[in-house]
Amino acid sequence: MNPFSYERAQQPDAAIHAIASNQHAKFLGGGTNLIDLMKDDVEHPSTLVDITRLQTLATVNPVDGGLLTGALVRNSDLANTTEVRTRYPLLSQALLSGASAQLRNLATTGGNLMQRTRCYYFMDPSYAACNKRAPGSGCSAVNGYNRIHAVLGQTDNGPADAHTCIATNPSDMNVAMAALQAVVEISGPKGKRSMPVRDFHRLVGNTPHLDTNLKADELITGAFLPAKAAVFAPHSYYLKARDRQSYAFANVSVAAGLELEGGSIRSIAFAMGGVCHKPWTSEEAEHVMIGKQATAETFKHAAEVATRGAKGYENNAFKIELSKNCIVRAFTLAAQGTGTASA
């Protein structure tokens, strides 16, 4: 860990000012991701701006029929908020399936949106090649041990190419937020803006070093859950396929929500985790389900469409079939009615 200085922001504006005036400063939320990366010499901020005392950003409030969660609301608090549990159970389930109780007690909404990939080669600078950590250096994962990597939307021009990256976004929360079409609230030196979660995280494209569209001097102030996303409350399910019963990142996860009318599907919430550099969404897959009966046939068709063009590697090809099966299963369970958080 490099030597760094520490300051505590009391107001959002002060936090933004601190970060805008020092390009090597970083916000400190729960610290569960950033501090690890600092210890392992991946992140080297010169200053940590602790934002955990920004009380105004630490509450969940009803706004415009929806729900606005502050950026500093802890993952466990958000998951257990009554409004979230009753109106957006998909998000609650996703949050509770993530990490461990201790981590969820520390992790913040803003930090979760910003958490970095768990690619082994990114997290250990002993590996020379990693375009995300050291732009232009290549990618150790394409020909390495790539079991936890992406099968959809990745950039792969070979291990030596400066744009190659097959990393995934590891978050569960982000998947549910993408499915529910939540909106990220942002403040910067130039004022406030909003950005749908679906646009917040980036595909790799030609910029593997960029995870999100947040600018370096911007602060996430919150995430807004729109009123219309509450229609999925009776019929939603977050399915997380992983290597052990708890405390493991998803091999594949599916956030599924259905608005049903009679037996037929009126609207859909859908996103996948563990398969792409961002929460994977597919308007085509949603499209083929709308107006159809909520049956296995419908979901199978959607699963094919959602995973079209998937490409696996030596260790992660299993994710393609797993994704399809999980899509069908998650929507089947959603159709049956909302249960409790998945194991």
Binding site: R118, D124, Y145
Partner: peptide, 19 residues
């Protein structure tokens, strides 16, 4: 890793044991 000969999952987050 078959190029570096280093254990890639060298921490208790990724080296899975029962919880």
């Amino acid at each position: 890793d078959n190029v570096y000969g280093r254990v890639v999952n060298n921490n208790l987050g990724e080296y899975h044991v029962p919880v």
